[in-house]
């Protein structure tokens, strides 16, 4: 069963074609890595999936319905930077999605409901190994911890699809390996559909069940944009953790 379906999607900026004829259907529960050189439109495609941009031509559907015109809580996102809120502590960042969902007027909870939310947030922090940093502000965390926090925060909103935009590109190799293990574990536990954009091919294959390559065949021709040039099925590696260890 496919969750996301892109049909003949084009993106054109001021007469310059960025993406052309993109046809993808993404199955429920799959982990799709999109790779390609910079400027190949992979991030543009992800922006369309999160409704930050709308395609010039073609349609994208989620569960059979056209995507809403603005970002909604059914599609979570983790960016390379600025993914968490600098004015909230680690714990408050993770509590925020629950508060937003439960309290439309004040976006804050009080008393027993607040305590329940805090407990849920603490459980999530423990899950991603950030419980010791609960009272810190994001600026006090390392890059890897910030991205773990961003994952935890996104997961609290229980999205149907999680979109990752070069989430680990700014991290050093050791930290990156750790967070790959965590990402894979979270994906296996939640059975969520994940679409990740990256320029790191080994990362794409390590995490993805499917790797899609975007490429501009005629980089200098503005009338032609990037296309999907490869669509590879990768068997999920279950023993990933042991290989890394």
């Amino acid at each position: 069963m496919s969750t996301i379906e892109a049909k003949d999607v084009w993106q054109i900026y001021d007469g310059r074609v960025v993406l052309e004829k993109i046809n993808i259907s993404i199955n429920e529960g799959s982990f799709v890595s999109i790779v390609g050189p910079s400027g190949c439109g992979k991030t543009t495609f992800l922006r369309m999936l999160m409704s930050e941009e709308t395609p010039s031509r073609g349609t994208i559907t989620l569960d059979g319905k056209p995507l809403p015109a603005e970002p909604t809580s059914d599609r979570g996102v983790v960016f390379q930077r600025y993914s968490v809120f600098p004015h909230l502590t680690v714990l408050e960042n993770v509590m925020l999605p629950l508060e937003l969902a439960a309290s439309p007027l004040l976006s804050r909870l009080f008393g027993a409901r607040r305590r329940a939310t805090r407990d849920a947030a603490r459980t999530m922090l423990e899950h991603v190994g950030l419980h010791a940093a609960a009272s810190f502000y994001p600026a006090q965390l390392s890059g890897g911890m910030q991205q773990r926090l961003a994952l935890a925060q996104a997961l609290m909103a229980k999205p149907r699809v999680l979109l990752l935009d070069e989430p680990f590109s700014a991290l050093d190799p050791g930290t990156r390996a750790d967070i790959h293990v965590l990402t894979k574990r979270l994906w296996e536990e939640t059975k969520m559909t994940i679409v990740m954009v990256t320029h790191d091919i080994s990362e794409a294959f390590r995490l993805g069940t499917r790797v899609i390559v975007f490429e501009r065949l005629n980089p200098d021709d503005p009338a032609h944009g990037a296309r999907m040039t490869h669509d590879l099925s990768v068997r999920p590696r279950l023993k990933d953790k042991k290989v890394l260890a």
Partner: peptide
């Protein structure tokens, strides 16, 4: 940052 505003929207 725009990313922050989008992030907030994806959290509902």
């Amino acid at each position: 940052p725009k990313a922050q505003m989008i992030k907030a929207q994806t959290l509902g």
